[in-house]
Amino acid sequence: MLVANKISREDILTELFNIGVGQAASTLSDIIDKQIGLTIPEVKILDAAKAKVELNKYLLQVAEGAVMVSSISFDSQLEGKVSLLFPADKMHHFIDLCLHETHVETENTLEFNDIDFDTIKEIGNIVINSIIGELSNTVNIPVEYTLPEVDVLNNASADHFVDSEEYRLVLMMFLAFDIEETEIAGAIVINMTLKSLDDILNTIDRLYNGS
């Protein structure tokens, strides 16, 4: 059931999530009064092992092992955990752009203060809300969660974000965050229980393919 129509399901999810992040971009543009672009080129449905390989590539090539991560766990009818990852070394510049500020002396450090964490917490809340909200609305399954936890991880590996024991299936997507011609390459990892993802995909099939 999960393998059949896999491509079309991924395409549908890509379109759904792009609608969501489009709204997130519009909200963020309104808040910080700057033009913001947010796009998700492709959503992949992977088993835990493949997701770890994909994610490790990102961590090695883009984030060089240090990431700033906003994550929330959700339960109720859908169970899982979503993590939004950004390369930590780009975050001071990114935060400064969002806050209309310049701090040359801290630009290259991996030290973050409470203000930085709160800024990322808000951005994470908006982006994650948009993605999970769109998904929840489309399949008409309620999702409950709290505000994101924000953390900085040095030497992060995919094992931090993909729990093969509990979830087994992963929705993975890369996020291009564009602000004032600076592009930040983020990644979103959604761990879900098999049943949760099955529920979503079956509902999508019913809605879009009539099966």
């Binding site: 909200t27 309104d30 800024t119 917490k121 808000e122 809340n125 809300n129 999702v143 409950e144 969660y145």
Partner: peptide, 25 residues
């Protein structure tokens, strides 16, 4: 502003909490 009104509407419909930081606001 639209961001506040939209957030309130989403919260009323979905129930998930919203956070606005002092740095951005």
């Amino acid at each position: 502003r639209p961001f506040f009104h939209n957030a309130v509407q989403r919260l009323i419909n979905g129930g998930n909490p919203v956070f606005f930081s002092a740095a951005m606001h």
